[in-house]
Amino acid sequence: MATSKKLWGGSWLRRKDIYSAIGVMCIAAFFLLGTAFMPWKGVGFTWYSAPGLVPAILAFLLFLSGLLLFLRALFNRRFYARLATEETGGPPVEDDGQEVAAAKDLPPLLQSERWRVILVFALCAVYIFLLIGRLNYILATTIYMAAFIWIFKGGEWYKSLLVGLATAVAVWALFYKVFAVILP
């Protein structure tokens, strides 16, 4: 435990940077490895015009940047301390308490930022990967819209359904019929 505290230095951003730096290095390594399997000499080209040359240079530079990020996150605590003190913004949003009170009336799941993000991504993923292409476009869009509005307390189920259907029909009529845009 003490080791991990020492490693992370208690900084949330530092920890996130360590993870993202590892991710960046892995991506760069994948691309670098990919270039190794490309031809470097062939009919009509030599190493300096090979298809893998530019990707190899870029992947190497990306790996280097990831490594720098990793080393900085591990050893440069002062940088993160400075970042934390430099956080500035505009004047704070003034509320009269109504919005905060309305937020407190939401179910516990919708009060958590993390769960809200997961819910949005989950709903969008269901729409893109499961509904679109398998169901009729209007039906798929109505289901997605109605579910989104209902889950995020935009209205009762019948209102959600009505708004969903109206949106789906409007998008279909406007883009498919008027603009002749193909729809999934």
């Binding site: 729409y127 893109i128 509005i149 949106t167 998008v171």
Partner: peptide, 25 residues
Amino acid sequence: SILMPIVFVLCGVGSFAINGRIFDM
């Protein structure tokens, strides 16, 4: 909660329309 799913639906149409591929979505 009403506006954002509409925007997402439009994002989907915009991505799909150019090549007509669900892969782009």
